[in-house]
Design a protein around this nucleic acid. Structure first.
Lengths: 335, 335
DNA sequence: TTGTAAGCGTTATCAG
DNA sequence: CTGATAACGCTTACAA
């Protein structure tokens, strides 16, 4: 088994010095086309790939960005809508992306503060997470996407969850519903808190609306369980507002299972506009936020830290408008 | 802005030499508890994190494994079932995991042959991919999961797709169906080819069965389109065997949209047993393969390359049995 | 048990 | 335009 070739081997093969190999392959401006070709050819022949560790050690840059996710988020159909454009935008900026799927703060921190990445995109951060604070302390450029943390000073890009929730709650209230249930996600997620605030703000300010609140994860099972509880209660709600599409689909399933007519007897709404929400059997009325734009703006915020431009202080938070998508799961309450 | 601390800084703070810092923090056996404590304390105080690039450069190991996926796979609900246990098994073996979500061979190769990972788990490999060959040529330990490539010499761990497909086709044939359609995935995926072979083997050997074949991606849209074509044809199939659950759900949706009774008028089967397949509104009859065990076996195959044990030649391929899951979308053909 | 010395492969600096 | 030289931060070998 032959040793993996280094730039020294390429140099010998091409008859140049080792630093010249580095310059030639890096596309350095002041190298003669002749030597560049010779070096390229030799590198090709030997199957030479510059070693990341040597490069990173010397240059103190890895040209790599970590996108931090979590096992929970990996299961959510909304996730790829965020990951793929992030990957693309970072690639366009000359950065490679590695996705970290970790549950614990410690595991994440140990992997992003060891100099192996130039920056971090946080997509699954809990409100109580210590990660943003530690990153700031270590001077690691970072940006939050689709999440906010209470402490200031962390660049973030989010949809206006509160506004989106308020808008769809307004639609439901406007239809005349007075028996409304909310099915929310975990308290540790800013999206859930903000959506809750949006829902509540509208429902409280309207006419006498009786509101029940259930809580769980952003998943199908939560929706099923919530619907079981709500639909077997003595006084059924006539509308169920869910903090995510995954929850709403669970509610829809359980409702149909029980022969409850949606939207005739029951209005159900979601949030996120995952692909399934648009499928014909569901046609879920929901709130859309533009993950692609969210990703692009987040990358912009991150890049402004990586290559700080003079005079252009980037805004700390970008908040994108969320749009209500009216499909077929909403209607006035039964008379 | 202060420089990020190095082991030298810790050494000075703790009043020891720099290599002693390395030994103390690495849990090296022959360090006095006193100095170990002193070093630990100093490191803690300075917020020292050993730099990956220095470590990797010197030790020639990164303690990191790349799990290679693709944007397409990221969208498939089966994906997390594989990724999460892979992550867990690798973590238990002392390796950190980074997920690579790349479409092109070149992008993948450039990231896994630069010494930044000790090994590679390939979860989304096309049959024609050059990646396994290049990895073998570069001497990078690797293993294929849920995929096979034609060339020998690449350790792999897969479900017995052919057997699983044959078994479920046997069930359908046994019910008496003679008008059967197959909706398959891309030709570039071994899973699709093997499932096709399993389906066809049984259907060809049975009594006169008329078989139609459609092809697309492993996704919902493919199922919808296939069902549209098949159900509006003059001679409708009485059973549609799908190469993935995502396809089958699309078929189910379209069938119900058209008021076709499943399973009364139409039998529909899937493959993978994704969580949705078990949801009550679907109750899809399908084939289950154990992603958790697949992941665990794959990691075992990879580890046997990373720490080669004497005398224990690891098998090249592990093939796991696939089980038919009988739910509620199969029945005899209408009379 | 600990310190000294060396070197991993690369990029940056400086002559020439 | 190119070569010699140094240095990045760490782990290993060897000496004390």
């Amino acid at each position: 088994m032959t040793r993996v070739p280094t730039s020294k081997d390429v140099a010998k093969a091409a008859g140049v010095s080792q630093p010249t190999v580095s310059r030639a392959l890096a596309g350095h401006p002041h190298v003669s086309p002749a030597t560049r070709d010779r070096v390229r050819k030799a590198a090709e022949a030997l199957g030479y790939v510059p070693q990341e560790s040597g490069r990173a050690l010397r240059s103190r840059r890895s040209r790599r960005i970590a996108v931090v996710s979590s096992p929970d988020d990996l299961l959510n159909p909304f996730h790829p809508q965020l990951i793929v454009p992030l990957h693309q935008a970072l690639g366009a900026a000359g950065y490679r992306t590695t996705l970290l799927v970790e549950a614990g703060d410690a595991a994440v921190l140990s992997q992003v503060t060891d100099g192996s990445v130039d920056g971090v995109v946080l997509t699954a951060t809990n409100t109580g997470s210590a990660v943003p604070r530690h990153l700031a302390a270590s001077g690691v450029p970072h940006v939050l996407v689709n999440r906010l943390v209470p402490e200031p000073g962390h660049p973030s890009c989010v949809a206006d969850n509160r506004q989106g929730a308020a808008d769809i709650a307004g639609v439901v209230a406007g239809l005349g519903h007075t028996e409304v249930a909310l099915v929310l996600g975990p308290r540790r997620l800013s999206t859930s808190l903000d959506r809750e605030a949006g829902f509540r703000g509208v429902l409280a300010s309207g006419r006498a609306v009786r509101t029940r609140v259930l809580r769980g994860g952003y998943d199908h099972a939560t929706g099923v369980a919530a619907a079981q509880a709500l639909l077997s209660a003595a006084r059924r709600p006539t509308a169920i507002l869910c903090a995510s599409d995954t929850i709403a689909l669970g509610v829809l399933h359980e409702a149909r299972m029980r022969g409850v007519d949606v939207p005739g007897e029951l209005t159900v709404t979601g949030f996120d506009d995952i692909p399934m929400a648009g499928w014909e059997p569901y046609a879920l009325t929901t709130v859309r936020h533009d993950a692609g734009r969210m990703a692009a703006e987040a990358v912009r915020l991150l890049l402004s830290q990586l290559r700080p431009a003079p005079e252009t202080a980037a805004p700390e938070a970008v908040v994108l408008h969320a749009d209500v998508v009216l499909r077929e799961t909403h209607a006035p309450p039964p008379v």
